[in-house]
């Protein structure tokens, strides 16, 4: 027993040493940056392209990827110091507007959120057919927002359905197994459901349906204190992202293959997600920053959050345009 304890303690010390890290200098002189992502193409397309094409290494950065399920958790992890930078979808932008994180790079405007129904369960293209149905959603996320809007279109509310609060993975399993009649979720869960249920599942509404009400933006974020202390590192990181964006434009299939490898899934699953958004190049992004398009998108997004976000906050108080433009120069 004593021997076993001794071995375990030695292993513990060894492991502790192996895992100690963070945003620090690695043995080959590269600065390690811990990057939080979500398991979809939209989250990984630019960062993986930058990693595999060697763009980050050129900037002296080694990227360490850590998977998360949602944006708020990524922000909580950044707050604790276990993550340096992260990718968030639309819903978590509310936290940035409220001052809890800064956006240092725009990623894309997505169309990944969707309300999906099952025909065999009596759900039709008319949102009114959701009345009395079992609907799964992820409370506090863009899933809840798009479901509420969809119900409002038919004059319904959450009281008219049997709503099940679930995590995104459970929603996918429940829809695939037919335990739910409908759900509100996001990509790639939405694609998995559509793919696994054949012709039975269909999209009742998505971000485009409500494009007049909000912009479903995805961004790269950082803690304000980290941004202040690591301005040059952030600029270098954005340079790596820009290079990744440009590499994807020229080698889309190759990048899809790389993302599939990181996600541990097949090429076709990731390939199906390529239509989730309009993927910009660095030149297009810089151009849209300069002509004010990006700022107006963030304005629309902020307005879409209504009273859930601080409407008095100015866009440049939480979006670091200077990092994006400096990285382009």
């Amino acid at each position: 027993m004593k021997k076993a304890i001794a071995i375990m303690l030695i292993a513990l010390v060894a492991l502790s040493g192996a895992f100690a890290g963070g945003s620090s200098e690695s043995s080959d002189g590269l600065r390690t940056v811990r990057v939080a992502y979500m398991a979809n193409y939209a989250s990984l397309w630019s960062v993986v392209a930058g990693m595999r094409s060697g763009a980050f290494a050129d900037q002296g950065i080694e990227v360490q990827l850590v998977e998360f399920a949602d944006g708020p958790t990524i922000i909580a992890a950044m707050e604790s110091g276990s993550i340096d930078v992260g990718y968030i979808g639309h819903g978590a932008h509310r936290l940035c507007i409220n001052g809890q994180a800064d956006i240092f790079c725009f990623s894309h405007v997505g169309n990944g959120d969707a309300v999906i129904g099952l025909k065999s369960h009596g759900v039709t293209e008319d949102p009114a057919s959701l009345k009395g149905k079992n609907v799964g959603y992820a409370s506090g996320t863009s899933s809840e927002t798009i479901l509420r809007w969809t119900l409002e279109e038919a004059g319904l509310s959450f009281d008219d359905i049997t709503a099940y609060e679930m995590d995104a993975s459970a929603i996918t399993s429940a829809m695939t197994s037919g335990s739910l009649d409908a759900c509100a979720t996001w990509s790639p869960s939405s694609f998995t459901i559509l793919e696994n249920t054949g012709d039975d599942a269909f999209i009742l509404s998505d971000n485009l349906t409500f494009s007049d009400r909000t912009a479903s933006i995805a961004s790269w974020i950082v803690m304000p204190s980290f941004a202040e202390e690591n301005h040059d590192l952030l600029v270098s990181f954005v340079k790596g992202l820009y290079a990744g964006m440009d590499y994807r434009a020229e080698h889309e299939d190759e990048v899809i293959g790389w993302v599939a490898e990181v996600l541990g899934t097949d090429f076709d699953t990731v390939y199906a997600q390529r239509g989730d958004a309009e993927w910009l190049t660095s030149a297009e992004l810089v151009s849209q920053i300069e002509d004010g398009t990006i700022e107006s998108l963030y304005e629309v997004q902020k307005a879409g959050f209504g009273e859930n976000a601080d409407q008095s906050a100015t866009i440049d108080s939480y979006v670091l345009f200077d990092v994006m433009t400096e990285a382009a120069s």
């Binding site: 708020p72 922000i75 909580a76 509310r94």
Partner: peptide, 12 residues
């Protein structure tokens, strides 16, 4: 699960 209030006030 996805609420930021808890995470922000009490940490994960």
């Amino acid at each position: 699960f996805y609420s930021n209030d808890y995470m922000w006030n009490l940490g994960l």
